[in-house]
Design a binder for these strands. Sequence first.
DNA 1: GCAACGATTAACCAACACGTTAACGACTTG
DNA 2: CAAGTCGTTAACGTGTTGGTTAATCGTTGC
Lengths: 104, 104
Amino acid sequence: MDATLAALADPTRRKVIDLLRDGPRPAGELAEAVSMSAPALSRHLRVLRAGGLVRAEAGGDDARLRVYTLRPEPFTALQAWLDQVQAFWAEQLGSFKDHVERGR
Amino acid sequence: MDATLAALADPTRRKVIDLLRDGPRPAGELAEAVSMSAPALSRHLRVLRAGGLVRAEAGGDDARLRVYTLRPEPFTALQAWLDQVQAFWAEQLGSFKDHVERGR
DNA sequence: GCAACGATTAACCAACACGTTAACGACTTG
DNA sequence: CAAGTCGTTAACGTGTTGGTTAATCGTTGC
């Protein structure tokens, strides 16, 4: 949870996530898409990997390529936490409902 | 979106969110709950306020108190983004379904 | 009015995050 | 095998973050 949100805190990394939304891509394409030096992006990718947000596999045809793909687990975990937080307003709504039903 | 995730990146601030889940609290209580000096927490609260995650109102009885409450907007916005990201696997599932239905 | 209190801001410092260029290892291609 | 390519790590400078204590502002209560 900690690693997930730390990873998502950076705009560049979020942009990478958004890019990967329409399909896996090799590191090079990602670097160019965010107009950043390859080393800089490589470290962002390391953070994303450490947080389990992405996974890298060797490109089948050209083994030099490292193809990155989104991983679902951290996102579902985050969503679960968000649901818990939002339960707060559900309670508020419940109190209000009780309040109303109690006739005032 | 940026401010939201930046705010959530810090563990202390997430703990504050979790504390506020079961009701509004004054700054002092929060500071003690996270065992941190009042100034340190005050700055965390400023970040949370800037991101719109919380709102502060003067305590009705004692005007020295600043009572903090959760605000829903950033959380729903974040959830919307998460849904978009997760659409990725929905597509994958679709492809798999097509794959199966195509008889192989 | 004056001491105490709650909260924030100011000033300062250690630690970390992020970008750059340079160097390196692994693979491909002629 | 030699040169070029893809990606990562190393080393470095810089800006930001997060904590501390000291000072400030508004409110409370005797």
